[in-house]
């Protein structure tokens, strides 16, 4: 049974340290399960109802609740988005080692397995795995439940590794402060042009696996030009999660962003 919405049953699963919680992600969480449509005899007049509501308004409400919880803590949440295998988990593991002393936690989203959360926990950091089943993205509801399993410290960093997918996660707000797009140089410099939505929505892009650039006939400047074509304001850092090249700049970016967030909370 969930504390936020009282839902139960199966669907996406949230896994924390070996025990499983099943939460149903149905469409009518707040309002119970009454029969669809009740008969009202004599009322058959057609009428038009203005709705003007975003289709994703429910998700947006969950995301707003998450954001409020995070703001109250002055915690900075980053939604890591990328295609499968760009190096998100490797990058996170290395980042966590470099951020020694910084309180942090990780939410791992994958369709199946708890492999990535296990890799994170091996670094000593708390992690919760969310399996989305058939779902191709995390949503605000899942992240809210995952947060219930983490005791975030004030000023903490929350990394949310989304399902590897360059399309759907762009539309689903999780309550994060920023999306971080991770691209590996092996994916080719045309990806920002082919999947613009994700890069328009991201505040910063990490060009990962720069150690492989010499082997794959790629021009990193073209990569950056293409990123700026779809998002003129995007920040770009070149990193190698494997060799550690460029990782200092990324860690400095994180520390600055986390400090800014907790300062904002303290000012309120």
């Amino acid at each position: 049974m969930c504390t936020v919405c009282g839902c139960d049953g199966d669907g996406a699963t949230v896994e924390a340290h070996g025990h499983h919680h099943h939460h149903q992600h149905h469409g009518d969480i707040h309002f119970g399960h009454g029969p669809a449509g009740t008969e009202v005899p004599g009322m058959s007049q057609e009428r038009l109802i203005e709705i003007e509501t975003s289709i994703l308004s429910k998700n947006d409400r969950y995301a707003a609740a998450n954001r409020e919880r995070l703001n109250a803590l002055g915690a900075l949440a980053l939604n890591l988005v990328s295609s499968p295998g760009s190096g998100k988990t490797t990058l996170l593991c290395r980042t966590i080692e470099m951020l020694e002393g910084q309180p942090l936690a990780v939410i791992e989203g994958d369709q199946q397995t708890s492999a990535d959360a296990d890799r994170i926990r091996a670094t000593g950091a708390p992690a919760v795995q969310v399996n989305t089943g058939k779902g191709c993205h995390l949503d605000g509801h899942m992240v809210g439940h995952a947060m219930d399993h983490l005791s975030l410290a004030p000023g903490a960093l929350l990394f949310i590794e989304n399902v590897g997918n360059l399309v759907c996660p762009a539309a689903f707000d999780l309550g994060e402060d920023a999306k971080v797009a991770i691209l590996s140089v092996t994916e080719g410099e045309d990806k920002p042009l082919k999947y613009p939505d994700m890069f328009t929505a991201s505040r910063i892009a990490l060009l990962n696996k720069t150690d492989l650039a010499p082997y794959c006939d790629i021009d990193l400047d073209t990569f950056e030009t293409n990123l700026r074509r779809v998002n003129p304001e995007i920040e770009i850092l070149r990193v190698s999660a494997k060799t550690g090249e460029g990782m200092d700049d990324w860690v400095a970016w994180l520390r600055a962003a986390a400090a800014a967030k907790s300062a904002r909370q303290a000012a309120e």
């Binding site: 057609e46 038009l48 203005e50 709705i51 003007e52 975003s54 289709i55 539309a171």
Partner: peptide, 10 residues
């Protein structure tokens, strides 16, 4: 945008 504009209902 992805919005429900309106609905005709009975």
């Amino acid at each position: 945008d992805m919005r429900i504009k309106d609905m005709e209902v009975v």
